[in-house]
């Protein structure tokens, strides 16, 4: 890799020519970074929905579920990365440990969000829905969840944006993603001569990815709550 230094100027602004020179490798990194940022959040939401519903529906289950998810959330991401393999009998540098750790993280964050979101449905609305004749399942899907969408959307935005940053950290302990651009740039910088292009490229791509995913979540949230758009006029 050290040959890269000679091909492109080391000016911070030449990150674009750096990208063009290593297009296929960089796109590969971008792709795996995207995958690692999105899939765990989606899985996390799928797992958090029933748990959040449970803790909202049965008040006895709220404290234990929230305590456990709160504890999981206090475990630093990098610690979780290295703790997952021994706990799950995986290889030390398994392809699965980062997505699993991030999924655990997303569940921990989203359970509370789902429970709070469902809790934000007013009792009047609930009783009206039941009185109209919704079955409990239909009420959950057609009334409670849609009303909880804004709160859940807010939680998903935090989850997805922080995931992009955490995935980059996984890049420093040997996994393939945009974080590698930072390690590459660091290794290519020597003493007094910094080599900026891969570092700046990594930052630019990470920020763009984070903002794009954030925007996607916002759009999805709006698509699911047309009545809010109407209220906004």
């Amino acid at each position: 890799m050290s040959g890269f230094a000679n091909e492109v100027s080391s000016s911070p602004l030449s990150f674009w020519s750096y990208f063009m020179d290593h297009r296929s490798a960089d796109l590969q990194l971008l792709w795996s970074h995207t995958w690692l940022s999105v899939v765990p959040v989606v899985l996390g939401l799928v797992i958090a929905l029933p748990l959040g519903w449970l803790s909202n529906r049965f008040s006895w289950s709220y404290p234990p579920i929230m305590t456990v998810s709160g504890l999981l959330y206090t475990i630093p991401s990098i610690a979780l990365f290295v703790l997952i393999p021994p706990l799950l009998h995986l290889d030390q540098l398994s392809e699965l440990q980062v997505p699993i750790a991030l999924t655990v993280y997303s569940v921990a964050l989203l359970v509370r969000v789902v429970a709070d979101g469902l809790g934000s449905v007013s009792e009047d609305t609930r009783q009206a829905a039941t009185a109209i004749g919704f079955t409990p399942l239909a009420r959950l899907l057609k009334v409670d969840l849609p009303i909880a969408v804004p709160v859940i959307t807010a939680g998903l935005r935090v989850a997805v944006v922080s995931n992009v940053s955490i995935v980059a950290i996984a890049g420093t302990i040997g996994f393939q993603n945009l974080g590698n651009l930072f390690t590459t740039g660091y290794q290519l910088s020597s003493g007094t001569s910094p080599y900026y292009p891969p570092i700046v490229l990594g930052l630019v791509l990470c920020v763009i990815l984070a903002l794009a995913l954030d925007a996607l979540v916002i759009l999805a949230g709006r698509g699911l709550t047309p009545w809010r758009r109407a209220a906004r006029g």
Binding site: V164, L178, G185, V200, L203
Partner: peptide, 23 residues
Amino acid sequence: IRSIPSIGLLILLVVIISPHFHG
């Protein structure tokens, strides 16, 4: 600011700042 990856920013700042301290 949360969307800026910490590790990337750290490395950028290190390569900018550390040369001035000559190790």
